[in-house]
Design a protein around this nucleic acid. Structure first.
Length: 478
DNA sequence: ATTAGGG
DNA sequence: CCCTAAT
């Protein structure tokens, strides 16, 4: 805030508990200083006239602001204010204008926000139809909200509050009270009207200052954590947190917003940097690849933790859910893309190694196999090994079946591609020997005396008997 | 953290 | 190959 050169203001503010003076609030206001319309000029140790003129100059703006507020306050505030201005006593007028002077920066602040009108529309919509959040509302809302987000640094209290009526009234009230906190009469009036309108509107008591404050702080925290990209996402998140308001801390929100994209970006980044050329990956650059992988993994874990919370919060928030859907859609498409890029063919050597490892350590000890046999290949995670083994089993069984059923056929199409017979035999052997629940003894266990698999450290539960190779997809039966 | 299982 | 639930 432009505190310098306005000692009287400082004093005033100090009198009013300096609610806005602490640095936490500043971001928006500092930017407002750049708008520089107002408080520069009235610097002329404003006599009352100066104040008046100044106030009149900005009367329009003020009225606009009223419009803005009235959106949330059902116009009663506007009317009241107009009356006050039109017929009120001079004292009152002066006081109001004086208050306006102090507020002007804030008003301009709001004005400076690119699309006040849009914002107002958003508010109005929300206020007028709080009970029917229909799909049709969503699109315009999102549009307006993204605008809002662009301007949210200017008007912290307003962005992100459009979503729910409660949120709006809360932050609006907050802003109002903030901006009018220097003016006793105005303040009283405002709060009274606020309470009145709020009461008539929502049938309950208007929130008190104390309940309001956390919202503001929260919104601000949202502000500082905002990043340029994904305005929608950030908006939604902020909205959610505003909705569930006071209890939720800003840190959680930040985490949510930061983590999710980050993992994606990291993933993408690692893809782009590594998979641009496969050879490059296979030969070199393995030094930092594991780190990336582990990082990815870790973040995935975080993600897992965080996402459910997110879903919890999103209950019955129509356009939040919609945009979440959007998120999912984009995410899905991206992941599909990534998956393709990711894919690395299993070489025969790898398969053999895997089979060896399984024969050596047993099925299920994928981490061991990975650590001991695939230590050099960073891109094969234990899960990959397991997947590969699964596929091998499936394909081998399929091949056997094929062979048996259609003996005359030339080649079992894609059943097992290019796998040398010995390997397939080994796979089959292992498949019969090792207790991998799904694929074990796919055919007739009765006529086959399979080894009691005593050696296996990780003896799986007795597998249910499956009739066909397709049993891979079976649900587990009792 | 690791594994099983589904997609 | 990815994701998730279960352990």
């Amino acid at each position: 805030m432009k505190t310098e050169g306005k000692p009287h203001l400082i004093k005033k503010l100090a009198d009013v508990k300096c609610q806005r003076v602490d640095g936490s609030v500043v971001p928006g206001l500092e930017e407002a200083a750049q708008v520089e319309h107002l408080l520069a000029e009235p610097n002329s140790e404003h006599s009352v006239d100066g104040v008046l003129c100044f106030g009149k100059e900005n009367l329009e703006k003020h009225l606009k602001m009223e419009d803005f507020f009235s959106c949330a306050l059902d116009y009663s505030w506007k009317i009241n204010c107009g009356e006050v201005y039109g017929q009120g006593g001079d004292d009152l007028k002066l006081e109001i204008l004086d208050g306006l002077l102090d507020d002007v920066d804030e008003v301009d602040n709001i004005q400076a926000a690119d699309d006040l009108s849009v914002t107002c529309e958003g508010f109005q919509l929300d206020i007028e139809f709080p009970e029917k959040f229909s799909e049709s509302d969503c699109a315009p809302h999102e549009g307006s909200n993204s605008h809002n987000l662009d301007s949210q640094s200017h008007a912290p209290g307003f962005s992100g509050s459009c979503s729910s009526a409660g949120g709006i009234s809360e932050s609006s009230v907050a802003t109002l009270q903030e901006s009018n906190s220097q003016n006793g009469v105005l303040r009283k009036m405002v709060s009274r009207d606020l309470h009145h309108t709020f009461k008539s509107k929502f049938g309950c008591q208007a929130p008190v200052m104390d309940t309001v404050r956390p919202t503001i702080e929260h919104v601000q925290s949202f502000d500082e954590s905002d990043d340029d990209e994904k305005p929608l996402v950030s908006f939604i998140l902020s909205t959610k947190s505003v909705k569930c308001s006071v209890t939720k801390g800003g840190t959680l929100l930040r985490q949510k917003r930061l983590r999710k994209p980050t993992s994606r970006y990291i993933e993408e980044f690692s893809r782009n940097s590594t998979s641009s050329s496969k050879k490059c990956l296979k030969v070199g650059s393995q030094g930092d690849l594991p780190q990336v992988a582990s990082e990815l993994k870790r973040q995935r874990g975080h993600l897992k933790k965080i996402v459910p919370k997110l879903e919890l919060e999103s209950d019955s928030e129509p356009f939040a859910s919609k945009s979440e859907d959007e998120q999912k859609r984009t995410k899905r498409s991206r992941t599909v893309c990534d998956r393709r890029k990711h894919q690395r063919m299993w070489t025969l050597a790898e398969v053999i190694k895997l089979v060896d490892g399984i024969a050596q350590y047993g099925v299920g000890r994928w981490t061991d196999i990975k650590r001991l046999l695939f230590a050099s290949s960073a891109h094969r995670t234990p899960v990959d090994l397991r997947d590969k083994w699964r596929n091998l089993l499936r394909s081998s069984s399929a091949r056997k079946r094929n062979r048996r059923e259609l003996q005359g056929e030339t080649k079992p199409k894609h059943a097992v591609r290019h796998l040398p017979m010995p390997v397939v035999c080994r796979i089959h052997e292992l498949a019969t020997i090792h207790p991998y629940p799904m694929a074990r003894c796919p055919k007739k266990p009765s006529d086959h005396n399979y080894v009691p698999l005593s050696k296996q450290p990780r003896t799986a539960k007795v597998a249910p008997v499956y009739s066909q190779g397709r049993d891979l997809r079976r649900k587990k039966c009792s």
